[in-house]
Design a binder for these strands. Structure first.
Lengths: 339, 339
DNA sequence: CGCCGAGTTTGCATCGTTGCATGCAACGAT
DNA sequence: ATCGTTGCATGCAACGATGCAAACTCGGCG
């Protein structure tokens, strides 16, 4: 029932190959012929059959995006931007959720997994290791900033250390000296947390400020619940901090909730800064100051980098390009002068 | 370079067709043969080539999900559940964003659009009309609850009127009588808002309560900004309400923010109820009571319904099945007894 | 002992497209 | 007039899988 090249060819009185040339905008087609064939294409409503083209060319026209979980706002916003960036490049995007399971990340990327359906994959890894990536992969892969700092592979992201320094400097400039960091993470997958912690300590020591015991908190979970719990612990300590630097906005949301519950005013008594600059930050109470690494730019660069990898012959070890995206602090109402 | 059926056949000493039979779990393969072939498959790492299969069978193994925007938490959570539901059915999922543009919804579904790449589509429509759906589509379509009430097509969603009634009854049971509704919408795409408004008015009149002028607010936008603006308007009115029913949680987020800014305590002075039961509701300040239509169930039923449509011969007018998912009220801290 | 049929296995054609190599016409240069 | 050369257009053969129908195997039965 669907219209094929053959149908169009018959209709336009040319060969199948010529129709293909027109449909693909190949050069070396006479203007007159092109117009006539194009007319037939439009008239019959012909569209390229992606399966057949894919079979012939080995390309699918589809990119994969692997994120831990779409319902986390950060990844939802990232997916939003990536879908758009892919569409701008004329590619479709399939989204997979790994839930942070290393095995899922690994198996999907292997030649037998989903990667088979993709020309390339953009991966926001949590559990995957360098050796997993050294295995033969089903398609070229670009890693995104989260937890991928030490993997030798093409990579796009922000500079965690420098951005953490900027965040702390923002708080110090407001007069804070008793600052806590929420979001450190031991063990595998904790690279991001470690880098941000490093930046935190660096900025503190550069300012000549001590980092008191217990001021670097590893939350029980990296969501609002974890942030809230961390704040309750900090409030119970001998000398509670006057400023909190949360390693992601969801932690900060939980922090705000716990502070509100404890009737502690933000930012009058405690300042809070988050990280990711989520859309919702504008409407937390109070609106949340946050570290911003523009997701649209990350997505666009990731697609661009991936497309450039596609040009290279497969099997070639891809150069471990690292594209660093500028960060800055989006100031809102949750940070203010120290009391 | 990739392993094909032919490679496996040679390796196992059987015909290509038999390998295909094993790979697809067809009956009528002798157990011994099956085991031997399976061993070869595993050993060589053979995987079905989806493009080739797709070309032959006409199926792609991919479902499409069309939502207005992934960065809206509601659609992100819905996409999360839908990806999972599709995976459970052995299908991949491609996500497209329509930004609510009718033309995008329409063109992607037409035979020439993305639908070409999909076995079926799950669509959360905003602008699409009944006549658009009556056109020849590129694949079977299941509509989701939002704004699709009056379209003749297979549909999965909650009962907006009944759920709105339940929400209002919850507020009335707490002693509220001065209740406002935020989220009405005139014009195309406003069906959801109209139904929820209908439920609101119905519950009020059933309780013998008047709906005062200006108490049904059409927000400037359906996000937190719109909710905040609506609340500011309501607060400026002669007799401000003591309870707010917001037609989605993002509106409610904005409402909470505006109330906090006005130093009005929730729920002591004003109660707020939202709709969608977003993950983040647990950590708003205070935690947001919300109408819940379980997204996991919606997604699962939508995939199930879509798969059942795939069985029917194309061209057949699909029966306009409507699957209604139960709602209930998730009570949290933002609703309380009237002052 | 040969035939039957259920249970297995196979060969062939084909899905719609593009890579490749070649055909063909027209034109300018020799 | 002839020979490249360039620019268009074409035919054929794949890509890797599955639908179809035929063929084979073998135990059981007339």
């Amino acid at each position: 029932m669907p219209v094929t090249l053959r149908d169009v060819a018959r209709h336009a009185g040319v060969s199948v190959r010529t129709v293909s040339n027109v449909a693909n905008d190949f050069p070396h087609v006479a203007p007159g012929t092109r117009a006539r064939v194009q007319r037939s294409i439009d008239q019959l409503g012909y569209r390229i059959n992606p399966a057949a083209r894919g079979l012939r060319t080995g390309r699918t026209g589809v990119l994969g995006l692997m994120v831990p979980k779409l319902s986390q706002p950060y990844f939802a916003e990232l997916a939003d931007e990536t879908v758009q960036a892919a569409a701008d490049a004329g590619l479709a995007l399939m989204v997979e959720q790994t839930e942070g399971r290393r095995e899922a990340e690994r198996s999907w990327l292997r030649p037998g997994g989903m990667a088979r359906m993709w020309d390339g994959a953009i991966v926001s890894p949590l559990g995957i290791t360098g050796s997993d990536l050294a295995e033969r992969l089903g398609c070229p892969v670009v890693l995104l900033g989260e937890h991928a700092a030490d993997l030798r592979a093409p990579w796009v992201g922000g500079d965690n250390v420098a951005a953490a320094v900027a965040a702390v400097e923002h708080l110090i400039a407001l007069g804070h000296s008793e600052i806590a960091a929420i979001g450190a993470q031991r063990g595998a997958g904790g690279e991001t947390g470690r880098e941000r912690t490093k930046g935190f300590r660096l900025a503190m020591s550069d300012a000549g400020l001590p980092v008191r015991k217990g001021r670097v908190v590893e939350p029980v979970s990296f969501d609002a619940a974890g942030g809230a719990a961390a704040v309750r612990t900090l409030l119970a300590s001998r000398r509670p901090p006057t400023a909190l630097m949360c390693f992601n906005d969801e932690l900060a949301y939980g922090a705000l909730a716990a502070l509100a519950q404890a009737h502690i005013s933000v930012p009058d008594e405690v300042s809070v800064i988050g990280w990711d600059d989520l859309r919702g930050n504008e409407f937390t109470v109070p609106a949340l100051t946050s570290v911003r690494v523009p997701k649209a730019v990350v997505a666009r660069e990731a697609v661009r980098l991936l497309l450039s990898l596609l040009g290279q012959p497969s099997g070639t070890e891809p150069a471990p390009v690292r594209i660093v995206i500028d960060h800055h602090i989006t100031e809102r109402a949750s940070t203010g002068p120290a009391a």
